[in-house]
C-alpha cells in the first residue's frame, strides 16, 4: 500500500474493522488522528497516503482536515494549551485567566513559544463549565483535561513539561 499503512498496519486494520468494509471512509478521522500522532500535525504526504487507503481524493481529505478544529495541517507547539473562554467559563474568570497566561508565557493566543514547546489557543466550550477556568492539552498522543485551574498550577505544569523536554543535550527529545 504505502509507508503510512506499513508503519501502522495493525492499528489501521483494527480501525478499519470497526466499519462495514464498503464504508471504510468512516475511518477518516481515526486515521487523521494517527497521522497527527506521528508528526504533531498532518502532513501533505500523510493526507495523500490516507486518501489512497480510503479510496478518496486528497482534496476530500484536505477538506476534512480544514473543517475540524482538533486537526492541524501546520506544525505547532508540542503541547497545545486550549483554554475555554466561552460564556459559562467567561462568567467564572476564564478570560482573565487566559490573559494572565498570555502574559506569563509572553505570547498571544494563537501563537507558539519560541522554544516550540507550547501553542496557546482559545477554544469554544469543552463541556466542563462547572470547573472553570479549564483547558485541555492536546498533543499528538491525545487530549487531557485540566479543571479548576489557576495561573500557579498551570505554570507548575508547564515547568514539568520543560524539564521533561530539556533532558537530552539537543533539547528536542520526543
Amino acid at each position: 500500500m504505502n509507508a503510512f499503512y506499513e508503519r501502522h498496519k495493525e492499528e489501521i486494520e483494527r480501525i478499519l474493522a470497526k466499519y462495514p468494509p464498503e464504508h471504510k471512509r468512516s475511518a477518516m478521522l481515526p486515521l487523521l488522528y494517527l497521522a497527527q500522532r506521528d508528526e504533531g500535525y498532518i502532513t501533505r504526504e500523510a493526507m495523500a497516503q490516507i486518501a489512497e487507503i480510503l479510496d478518496v481524493s486528497v482534496t476530500e481529505v484536505d477538506g476534512v482536515v480544514g473543517f475540524y478544529t482538533l486537526l492541524h495541517d501546520k506544525p505547532g507547539g508540542k503541547y497545545r494549551i486550549q483554554v475555554c473562554t466561552d460564556l459559562p467559563c467567561a462568567l467564572r474568570g476564564a478570560e482573565q485567566f487566559l490573559h494572565q497566561l498570555e502574559e506569563a508565557l509572553g505570547i498571544k493566543a494563537g501563537e507558539t513559544t519560541p522554544d516550540g514547546l507550547i501553542t496557546l489557543e482559545e477554544v469554544m466550550c469543552i463541556a466542563a463549565c462547572d470547573k472553570a477556568p479549564v483547558f485541555q492539552v492536546q498533543t499528538g498522543e491525545g487530549l487531557t483535561y485540566y479543571e479548576n485551574m489557576d495561573l500557579e498550577k498551570t505554570l507548575a505544569l508547564i515547568a514539568e513539561w520543560r524539564k521533561k523536554h530539556t533532558k537530552t543535550p539537543e533539547g528536542n527529545s520526543s
Partner: peptide, 10 residues
C-alpha cells in the same frame, strides 16, 4: 458497539 471520535465541531 463501537466508539467513534469527532474532531472539534459543534
Amino acid at each position: 458497539i463501537y466508539t467513534h471520535l469527532g474532531a472539534g465541531a459543534y
